[in-house]
């Protein structure tokens, strides 16, 4: 039997070429949907604006701050929230059901590239477009809510890395969760449970410092806060450089855990694949 081993350098170069092409293709596609993308982004504003109005009201009622957040820093939190939420949009587990039923999963399995790269590259390309589209929205929110943000170059650099780390972590964990579909094509309830836990313990619903201590302790041992609270707090909450870099290290750790999880589950999932719909 033939067993050909690729040189790691050649493999990395091939993968980089793939990411560039897939990212470009996805970006071109997203630009062709710019009107619907804009409507989508605007539609997403309702959630953070509601949170912001509620917490600002509470902060003002409590003498100007709540959980260490002033009205200005809450505004900054939820404006950055809109960008981080965009970065958190990844291939949803429910999409696996559709992919399998429509036969598209078979097409992906036949390619000499792991399908997870396809989604990572595709969504990364789309995000470049979404960030461009987000800028005017951020400007409008800044004008409306007057955020208080005092940041240095290190914080900005950490934030720019952290939003991509958040994207990688959430992509990998939701991808691993989506693989459940290889065992049962009706895993929607499991996905919903995951999303509820994530909503509470990521910093999406409320800043983590506003949660009770026991909830924060649980959040510390889960990946969710590194996909939401950490990128936002890296700009909003004053922290030492060591602490910020430590956060990036934790993100790298969770990326590694997610990648290992995908690799392990994937190996078993493809053995289960029954190719229905194709």
């Amino acid at each position: 039997m033939t067993a050909v081993r690729e040189r790691p350098v050649a493999r990395i170069r091939a993968l980089a070429d793939f990411y560039v092409q897939a990212g470009k293709l996805s970006a071109v596609q997203q630009f062709s949907y710019r009107a619907s993308n804009y409507l989508f982004l605007v539609g997403m504003l309702a959630e953070p604006v509601i949170y912001l109005v509620v917490w600002r009201t509470i902060a003002e009622a409590k003498g100007g701050s709540v959980g260490g957040y002033t009205a200005g820093s809450l505004a900054a939190y939820y404006i950055l929230w809109t960008l981080v939420r965009n970065m958190n949009l990844v291939y949803a587990p429910a999409g696996f059901e559709w992919r399998i039923a429509s036969g598209r999963m078979s097409g992906r399995l036949l390619l000499p590239v792991h399908p997870v790269h396809y989604d990572l590259a595709g969504f990364a390309g789309a995000k470049v477009v979404w960030i461009v589209l987000w800028l005017p929205i951020a400007a409008l929110l800044t004008w409306l809510f007057e955020p208080a943000l005092d940041v240095g170059p290190v914080q900005v650099a950490v934030f720019l890395v952290a939003i991509w780390g958040a994207f990688a972590i959430r992509s990998l964990f939701l991808w691993a969760l989506g693989l459940v579909t290889f065992w049962t094509t009706r895993a929607g309830a499991l996905f919903e449970l995951y999303f509820v836990v994530e909503l509470l313990l990521s910093g999406r619903l409320v800043p983590l410092s506003l949660l009770p201590g026991w909830a924060r302790a649980i959040a510390d041992h889960l990946p969710f806060k590194w996909t939401f609270a950490f990128p936002i707090d890296s700009l909003v909450t004053p922290q030492s450089t060591a602490r910020l870099l430590g956060g990036l290290g934790m993100q790298a750790l969770w990326v590694a855990v997610g990648a290992a999880l995908v690799a392990v589950v994937w190996k078993r999932a493809v053995r289960r694949y029954s190719g229905v719909g194709a």
Binding site: F18, Q21, L25, G107, L111, V113
Partner: peptide, 24 residues
């Protein structure tokens, strides 16, 4: 297969071919 759908629906096939070049 009849339903392979490897081409991007909203883009010209030539764009998808460039991605195929990179994949292979």
């Amino acid at each position: 297969m009849g339903n392979r759908h490897q081409l991007q629906w909203d883009l010209p096939a030539s764009d998808s071919y460039e991605l195929t070049r990179a994949i292979y």
